[in-house]
Simulated assay, not measured.
Amino acid sequence: MSATRPFAIVTGASTGIGLELARRCAKEGYDLLIAADEPAIEQAATSLRGSGADVEAVQADLATTEGVDKLTAAIRGRAVDALLANAGRGLGHAFLDQEFTKVRRVIDTNITGTVYLIHKIGNDMRRRNAGRILITGSIAGFMPGSFQAVYNGTKAFLNSFSFALREELKGTDVTVTCLMPGATETEFFRRAGMMDTKVGTDEKDDAAEVANNGFDAMIKGEGEIVSGLKNKVQTTVANVTPAGVLAGQHRKMAEPGTAKK
C-alpha cells in the first residue's frame, strides 16, 4: 500500500452498502482494508482492485473480539484515515420464537464488535488528532421494531452512540458521522429471514446511492445523514409519534405473512 494515498477500513464490505462504500473510497483514491465474515470478501477485493486501489481483504467474524483483532492486526501500524463501520446483521420474526444464539450474534455483530473496533481505531485517531468515522446506523433505530425487536434495538444503540462519541470528540479533528438508511436493496432481508414480510418484498433504496450519501456526509464531517426523502419524512414523524403506535406500525411491515401476494 502506498504511504502517500489515504487509507480506509470498510467492514461488511462483501455486498450491499459496505461494498458500495468501498467502491466510493476506491474511486476517491483510498487504499483499502476490507472485511466480512464470508469468502465473498475476496471477490469484492478483486473487483475493487480493478479501480486501481490497493486492496487487502480479511475474512473475519467481527462479532468476536478475536475477529476484530484479526482485522486490526492487518493494519500493520498504518494510520487509518477513515473507518467505515458498516458490518451488521438482521433477524426477523418474533423475539420469543428466535434462537437465542442468533439473537446474541446480532447483538455481538452490530454492537459489541462495532464498538470494540471503533474503540481501537478511534484511540489511534485521537492520538494523531486526525480521522473520520462513519457508523452505519438505521432509521430502524427511531422505532420499536416489532418482529425485528433486537435488530432495531441495536440500531437505536448505534445511532445514540454515534452522536455521543461525536460530542466527546468536539475540539479534535476526528469526526463521527452516522449514516441512517431505510430499507435498502441488499442481501439483508434474505439473510434475516424476512422475505415473507411487507418490508422484505417492497421496493427499496439503491445501495450505491445510500453509500454515496454516507461517504459525502463523512467527508464533510457532518453528524448524521438520513438517506432518501421518504426516510427523512419517516424519521421526522417517528420523533413525535408515541412508541406504542410506532410498534404497531412496524408490525404491519415486519410481521411474517405480510408480504404482497
Rank of each mutant, 00 (worst) to 15 (best):
T101K: 11
A211W: 00
R105N: 15
P256Y: 01
T136D: 02
T184M: 10
G50Y: 09
A85L: 08
G67F: 12
N152I: 00
Q249C: 07
G228W: 05
A74S: 13
A192R: 02
Y151N: 03
E224G: 06
L91A: 12
G77N: 09
A45N: 03
A40Y: 00
R105Y: 06
S162E: 13
T186Y: 13
T11V: 10
A254V: 02
L71I: 08
A211E: 01
A82G: 05
S14G: 08
Y30T: 03
A130S: 14
A22G: 06
D54Y: 12
S2L: 10
A60M: 07
M1V: 13
R132F: 05
A8S: 12
G214S: 08
E255N: 00
K170T: 13
Q234A: 14
E56K: 13
L71N: 01
D216A: 15
P181D: 03
K102D: 15
F157T: 00
L19H: 10
T175D: 12
G248V: 04
A87T: 06
A79W: 02
G16T: 02
G221R: 07
E38L: 10
T197K: 01
D205H: 10
G244V: 05
E38V: 14
R166C: 02
G90A: 12
E187C: 02
I219Q: 15
F189M: 07
L229T: 13
L48K: 07
A22Y: 09
I225E: 05
A8K: 11
G113Q: 01
T236S: 12
G52Q: 04
K220Q: 14
Y30E: 05
V115K: 04
I133W: 08
Q59H: 04
D206W: 00
T46R: 13
N110V: 06
R78E: 07
D205N: 12
K120Q: 14
Q148E: 08
K260T: 12
V115Y: 03
A211L: 03
D205S: 14
M195L: 14
K230R: 15
D206Y: 06
A183Q: 14
K230S: 12
T197M: 00
R132I: 01
A207Q: 11
D206H: 04
L134N: 13
F147A: 01
T175H: 14
A45S: 08
T177Y: 11
D81L: 01
V237P: 02
F142C: 01
I111A: 06
A82S: 10
V210W: 08
A44M: 09
I225W: 02
